[in-house]
Design a binder for these strands. Structure first.
Lengths: 214, 214, 214, 214
DNA sequence: GATGAATGAGCGTTCATTCAT
DNA sequence: AATGAATGAACGCTCATTCAT
């Protein structure tokens, strides 16, 4: 929880932070390519020359936003994996972290997902390594579960991670696009369902029959 | 199979098709926003102005590419759903159709995924309805399976569809980004695994134990 | 009267005439520069390549329209001047000819006035000689009246012609712009008033007092 | 006199003014549509983009030039009308103001007349209201003269204004087109003649006979 | 005569970035 | 640190004109 608490903070005169927070709003609202540097400056209430005092370029603003947020997630995944929990619980925590990140600062997550993660040209390509680290972090959870016998081994860990991440990203996309409702209950339900679906599958089996009863 | 056979064909003098095919290559290579209309014209070997003879704008080229291809997929999903098959088989056919589409014309799929589907600003927003239709088509398969008792009902059909589509899209993204190998075997393996994972889950159970044996 | 009877005629298959008539409507409606050659062709119901079969360029269409109509006016002015009439009557006939030309084919006159006569760049410059001939024709009427003693000599004939033509052109402009009503009565009144004003002046004098009584 | 002193001044570093003055020269020389924004920038000796720093569009430059100059004339006409003078004197002042405006900055007046006032499509239409105000200002002078008995009432004031303005505009057109000489004497003579012609008429009468003697 | 596909120069506008103050 | 004037490359789009059929 408390994911990304820093991004919306600061009543201070930290102009750099002001610019970053303004950029989140503007990039989320209109898209990175559809807005001008001056829009960010206007939103931040500073002269737009100042943007270039703090950032080398418009891109660097986005890179900064992405990296500082994404690293939190990587750290969280790693930390979760170190805990002594069943894999399913770990994945639940990962899902919760991501969903809560969106809940906490939808604009920031929207920017990261839409402008970086889902944008293979320009930014996606640049941050491929970092994005991959997230898959790897999840894959490590799966891998350990396979070694410990709780997860099946016929689905490679990296595929499992891919599917799990893909499902969650699709949830975020649904919220971002306004295709899914964004109430608190929905967030909680989604967290539960994505883990349930990915771990136990969509088919009805004796096992999932028991799962239903829980 | 044979998905979208038309898009890469034609040694004919159909200049309109020539332009569309050139656009696929150029958009895939450098991205929609990163290339100029003249790049498309050059690639097609036609004069600049001819592009505007056939298309109202650069955007219309992309819209055309998206719509003509996406509709094939929607039709395929609907057709698959009409067959008398277990839901798992249906989903396998859907996965196969999408994967084969990528295998058949990776550039076109890359353009559609990267520039339209995963691009909420500009194009994604415009084609939201069409994109949603795909989710709905898959959801209908899941729904029927729930009614018929083969799929569990505690995971709503639309979520199931979302997760399934998300997993597949993540596969495509992996191939597009060069994060996953793109051999024939990989494509086939991926088709199988995404269905297996989504239907039976990642966890090891007595049921999946049996699945392993198949 | 019956000025420019040819311009709106022809139920024949004379495509050249069809194009010219279409050009009158299109140029009048949207302006020479604001419409495309294809607009003219569409209006004429012919393929736009045909326009280039009959005319060397878009400009030549306008030149043709201007010259064929303007020459009628020059001829009319010359013919009027040859009649044995008081100068005031001659000017009245000139005014009537121009006003009736507008009444007969407002679009054509609009094109000629707006796109050629009042457009010093491009077309005005090209047809300067022809435009000047009109001034000269009127000036000749004034000049003769001065020699014969009915017109004062302290206002040079060319100035007189300029003022007279300017007043009439302003009337046309008023109609074209929709600043003056365009009823039959207004046209007749305008004919009378422009001659009266230019010949007798706006000031009230014993002479004009008598004029009132007429 | 001293009409529009601001427009051609400034050796200062006011780049906005520099651009406006350059635009006057370029628009006058080659016409609004026949010149590129870069021509204006080059003429002003500033970078291309700076034009768009100060003006929203090429059109806005022309609008600005027209409005700032035209308003001076409207103000002048209103001010002249407020003076306690015979109508003929008032009209003489109006004529003088306009002629002097041309004398002072022929390029600016050329642009205004040719590109705006005489251009019913595009700009003329946009500024119809402002153009009409000029007619109305002159008409008010005539109207008052009619009420006070010095001008005849059988020629409506608005027609009188139209003819007077038309005559003057034709003079300007003559100078602009190079059809009339542009010496100081000619300007002064034209001022006198246009008023004389419009007030007293072209015909020789006992009254105008006396006028000759003056 | 008639068609409309094909050509390509031209131009208005945008906007990231620099820099003098 | 802070400002915003100044720069200029880049690009989408228009449209008059040509030409093969």
């Amino acid at each position: 929880m408390a994911a990304g608490a820093r991004s919306a903070s600061s009543g201070s005169a930290d102009k750099r932070r002001l610019i970053l927070d303004a950029a989140i709003r503007v990039f989320a609202e209109r898209g990175f390519h559809q807005c001008r540097v001056s829009d960010v400056a206007d939103e931040a209430g500073v002269a737009y020359g100042l943007v270039y005092h703090y950032f080398r370029s418009k891109e660097e603003i986005l890179n900064t936003l992405f990296l500082e947020r994404w690293q939190l997630m990587l750290d969280a995944i790693a930390e979760i994996d170190r805990r002594d929990l069943p894999a399913r619980e770990k994945l639940a925590h990962v899902a919760a972290f991501i969903v809560d990140s969106y809940r906490h600062d939808p604009n920031l997550m929207k920017v990261i997902i839409v402008e970086v993660t889902r944008s293979s040209h320009s930014f996606g390509a640049r941050h491929l390594g970092k994005i991959r680290e997230a898959y790897d972090g999840i894959a490590r959870i799966v891998e350990r579960a396979q070694r410990e016998g709780s997860f099946r081994q016929d689905i490679p860990a990296d595929f499992g991670a891919l599917f799990f991440y893909g499902a969650i990203e699709q949830l975020l996309t649904g919220w971002i696009f306004g295709m899914l409702p964004t109430t608190e209950e929905e967030f909680e339900r989604a967290k539960r369902l994505v883990v349930e679906a990915l771990c136990s599958g969509l088919e009805l089996t004796p096992t999932t029959g028991r799962a239903l009863a829980r």
